[in-house]
Design a protein around this nucleic acid. Sequence first.
DNA 1: CACTCGTGGTA
DNA 2: TTACCAAGAGT
Length: 345
Amino acid sequence: MSFILLLLDWYHTHKRPLPWRLERKVFNVWLSEIILQQTRVNQGLNYYEKFVNHFSDVHELAKADEQLVLNLWQGLGYYTRARNLHKTAKIISNDFHGEFPNNFNDLKKLPGIGPYTAAAIASICFDEKVPAIDGNAYRVYARLFGLDKDISDSNAHKFYFNYVLEIMPNENTGDFNEAIMELGATICMPQSPKCKDCPIAESCVAYQTGRIEKYPVKTKKVKVRKRNFHYFFVFDALTNEFLVQKRINKDVWQNLYDLPMIETKTKNYDVSFIPKNKVSKVGELRHILTHQHLNIQFYEFQGGIEEFQTTTNQDFLRIKTSEIKHTPFPKPIASFLADKFPEMV
DNA sequence: CACTCGTGGTA
DNA sequence: TTACCAAGAGT
């Protein structure tokens, strides 16, 4: 294909100097790819640095407690990635003697490594000829070849995978995959793409036919659920302890910690077993997740820890304020605690 | 396989 | 305010 050399040449001169591009060890490439799933480079950079500073190799990561891994991941979202990162580290360390599989099919069997990530690692580290199709790639290929296939269809990946497999080069497949993504991230953006700076605009069907804004075709919208959370801050000033709970249910923020809470149908304080005269509202915020809009209200419980335990008849954990920095909290809880104990964050 | 998993940036 | 979506994967 005539665009390939132009694309690779552009990539070699314009690619961003990102830390995971310094050395192409599988551990570093794998870590960066997991962090970057559904995450912009700027958001993931600090987390990548934190992880490589804490863990020099896959064995060190495997030996860590999950709580530490989640704590390092705190604030990045999609925490299943952190749990699966840790699971795969254990598998590689314990069962594979620290060596990652060297091919697409075996990589894809590992927790947290799906079709995209397996292709990225296999092409970057082992020069295997497999298309890495992420959100950037869907958009670039749709525009470049004028593909009308709806990328929200469940079989869109198979369609693009097979299509790209026919046109991609036999060698330097990692550079090719990364170049497509880099182009999507810096030139061929979703809105207002910089076609005048694009090295392959001459080959771009969408550009040449003036239909850039038509691609990619994506029809399905996300359905948002509204939820109302009431959080209780139950604090003992003598011991500097407060109540928390681990979120073990199959719900958002699994395996992270938050405060004792009640979910209600409406924003109203509809909590029968904790009288309203025992609490004072100390904060309210909206927190937006992909499929959920949360209205979160915070209350200080006026009684002590013992009274709260008795009143709710639940067994909460108590932690000291000095443990906040070692406990993984979701963003809104972390923000609440950071506001309350700025010196403890 | 449709749905569910965060958080932040941008128009 | 709303909408979109980012180096996707698991169930």
